[in-house]
Amino acid sequence: MSLPLGAFWMKYTLMINEGPYQRQSSDTALHFARAVLAKGHEVIRVFFYHDGVNNGTRLSVPPRDDRQIQQAWSDLAKAHSLDLVICIAAAQRRGITDAKEAKRQGLDTDNLLEGFRISGLGQLIEGSVEADRTLVFGG
């Protein structure tokens, strides 16, 4: 993807604070992220907080004629090597867990979707320091 002469690339950190389906926030953020990438900019981190952590479950089965929001994030991450980070504190409250954490907590399963990783709130601050622009998508 090339930019016209004189244009410059920007680094973005996005924060998603609402779960999929209940509100439009995650849809909007997806469209925005795709447009950022289409314009040749970089998304250095997408940080999921509050109910936004529910964007990272692999156990969602939406009706076939509806959009698949979680899978769309996963696919976008795969295509553009995005760093999708789920906040661990928010995730623990809401039952989003990876295999390692599930084992540590003695849970009988994990449910983190491919392309996401679980980490701490510091990732949001660090991402915002390193990015040229930070945008919050919330309910």
Partner: peptide, 30 residues
């Protein structure tokens, strides 16, 4: 950087205030 955390919601009726505070406390380490 100059970070501002904007709080516009009452506590307890939603989790925003509590989880905002958690972000603020973490930001101190940076």
């Amino acid at each position: 950087k100059k970070f501002m955390f904007v709080n516009r919601k009452a506590p307890y009726g939603s989790v925003y205030a509590l989880e905002s505070l958690e972000v603020v406390l973490i930001s101190a380490a940076f």
